[in-house]
Design a protein around this nucleic acid. Sequence first.
DNA 1: AGATGTCTACTTATCGGACAAGTCAATTAT
DNA 2: ATAATTGACTTGTCCGATAAGTAGACATCT
Lengths: 230, 230
Amino acid sequence: MKPLKTVRLSDQVIEALKELIDSEGFSLGDKFYSENELTKKLDVSRSSIREAVRILEVTGVVTVKHGKGIFIADPMKKELEAFKEWLINNETSIFEHFEVRLMIDPKAAGVAAVKADHEDIMHMEKACRDFEAVYNEGKTPALIKHDEEFHLAMAKSTKNRTLYYLMKTMTSSLSEGWVTSLHTPGRSEKTIKEHKVIFQAIKNKDPKAAEKAMRDHLDNALADIRASLG
Amino acid sequence: MKPLKTVRLSDQVIEALKELIDSEGFSLGDKFYSENELTKKLDVSRSSIREAVRILEVTGVVTVKHGKGIFIADPMKKELEAFKEWLINNETSIFEHFEVRLMIDPKAAGVAAVKADHEDIMHMEKACRDFEAVYNEGKTPALIKHDEEFHLAMAKSTKNRTLYYLMKTMTSSLSEGWVTSLHTPGRSEKTIKEHKVIFQAIKNKDPKAAEKAMRDHLDNALADIRASLG
DNA sequence: AGATGTCTACTTATCGGACAAGTCAATTAT
DNA sequence: ATAATTGACTTGTCCGATAAGTAGACATCT
């Protein structure tokens, strides 16, 4: 790479690095080339490489770790991990969790009803089927996983990655701490029915019905938990 | 300036330069110190100075002109251009963030209206005052911090720690470099008014009014951002 | 065998000096 | 007076050296 007049070299390097990441299929968390490797690869001094990498770091494309190397970054990942850790360590109550989920999930279901495509519909339908199948096999502990699968499929179909990652963080922290509490007597059967109602509303592209169905689902689940806890 | 363990020197330089700009009263278009001057002034090698200056350039604090020097930039103008670029390059956009915030914040404001105690009210009132004070001083870049302060105080008064930490995670996930772009022309004045409306509704323990005020606030902010981006 | 410390290679972080190249104004030649 | 030149100052890039964090291999001790 030779300097082009009037255009800063390090700016060209920035573009070259983005291109490298895309074209060579680097993804989330992968270790990138070291500064020395990049020096040879792009035939540019290490100073220019460093400037470019540093800028890619502040713009959230990569993260640089002293002594380890350059890694492809996930913008929200760091914060979400800290969030999850906090959720687990602080044993936040299941009621807090539901209060938040009641804010998010119904609205998300409404958005999903508008934006879900065929693939999303298939995914949610599969989650419903899996839940029912596992229930019929009597594998109660595994049910929570498929409950999450449905809610995550729903979140994904909103086409909002931020929302999706957020839900993933919350659900994963939930399954690690409160597995047993969620399966109160008779809850699984109700969940199967309620998920189907939500699914149908989304499939019918009816936002209001989807929102209401999701709210009812969470309200019912919360009521059952309260009842079982006395 | 001596190196501090575990903290990158160039990061410290960034803060030092921001401090220099503030404390020595540099303003829009002024010629800043040259790299050599900064080297002597901060007792740091030119490489580190360059890294820091380069980052301040991409975040819109200064502009660097070959052969001429470093100049204090117009934050708004520069950043709005860069912000557009950033939105294009990053898949998770500010719009995704707002879509999620629109799900959470209004409901949270409703809960806050019910559960906020005296201390919470004081905290929110302080956030409103701080925002207005900083605005009157013309320190635009610092406004976002006090905007977040208000929303976090609101979240905290829900007494739901999960919700609070969630909000904290989301606000911090907004890339630090581009936050001032959120303050489009005329937005600050509106924010002051809108925050007051939300605050009053919460203080009056009126959940529905609080919810509506928050929804309006976010809708308006989003509309302004869309408008400023064309 | 298992725990512990040391060595080594590789990585990023910082430094200092060198030269290229753009800018501007004072000086000089015409 | 005008044009060309020079020189000082600026950022842009390169190079080589050293510091410091990391991880795995290896040897040592218990």
